[in-house]
Simulated assay, not measured.
Amino acid sequence: MTRTVQCKVLGREAEGLDEAPWPGELGQRIYENISAEAWNDWLQRLQMIVNENQLSTADPESIALIERHMLGFLFEEGDLGGLPAGFRTGRGKK
């Protein structure tokens, strides 16, 4: 049976993730509150963030910035999470 969550991003019930996609408390919070569809939307946004900011996932400062964007995108917390100026997307958050 498929696990569902009340997704904070989509604002509706949707299929949940199979496991926590990130370590620690944040990963557990994502697992409990974010749908697989919204997580896939985040992964697309993450690719843009990494490329635009030339981030390295091996750099602790880059990981911290990624987490700030993640909190903004998934939970509308903090000052990040939106699209960079001049970017548009066909679906999901702007």
Rank of each mutant, 00 (worst) to 15 (best):
E13A: 10
E13S: 10
E13K: 09
A14S: 15
A14P: 14
A14K: 15
A14N: 14
A14Q: 14
E15D: 08
E15P: 05
G16C: 14
G16V: 13
L17H: 08
D18L: 03
D18F: 03
D18Y: 06
E19I: 12
A20W: 06
P21T: 02
P21Y: 04
P21Q: 03
P21S: 03
W22A: 12
W22I: 08
W22Y: 15
P23D: 06
P23Y: 06
P23T: 07
P23I: 03
G24C: 02
E25T: 12
E25Y: 12
L26A: 13
L26Q: 08
L26G: 09
L26V: 12
R29T: 10
R29W: 02
I30D: 05
Y31A: 05
Y31K: 11
Y31L: 10
E32F: 13
N33W: 06
N33L: 05
N33F: 05
N33Y: 07
I34T: 03
I34V: 09
I34K: 03
I34C: 03
S35T: 01
S35C: 02
S35D: 01
A36W: 06
A36Q: 04
E37S: 12
E37A: 11
A38K: 05
W39C: 04
W39L: 06
W39T: 04
N40H: 07
N40R: 10
W42P: 05
W42L: 10
Q44Y: 09
Q44T: 09
R45F: 04
R45I: 00
R45G: 00
R45S: 00
R45Q: 02
L46A: 08
L46S: 07
Q47F: 05
Q47E: 07
M48W: 11
M48K: 10
I49M: 09
I49H: 07
N51C: 12
N51Y: 15
E52L: 13
N53F: 12
Q54I: 13
Q54P: 12
L55Q: 08
L55K: 02
L55M: 13
S56G: 01
S56W: 00
S56Y: 00
S56R: 00
T57R: 14
A58V: 09
A58W: 07
A58E: 09
D59Q: 01
P60K: 06
E61T: 15
I63V: 14
I63M: 11
A64W: 08
A64K: 14
A64V: 07
L65V: 00
I66M: 10
E67K: 13
E67C: 13
E67G: 11
R68A: 12
R68E: 15
R68V: 08
R68C: 09
R68L: 10
R68M: 11
R68Q: 15
H69K: 01
M70I: 07
L71G: 02
L71A: 05
G72I: 02
F73I: 01
F73S: 01
F73V: 00
F73M: 00
L74D: 01
L74T: 01
F75D: 11
F75P: 07
F75A: 11
F75M: 12
E76I: 00
E77R: 13
E77L: 14
G78N: 08
D79P: 11
L80W: 06
G81C: 03
G81W: 06
G81T: 04
G82W: 01
L83A: 15
L83I: 13
P84W: 07
P84V: 04
P84S: 07
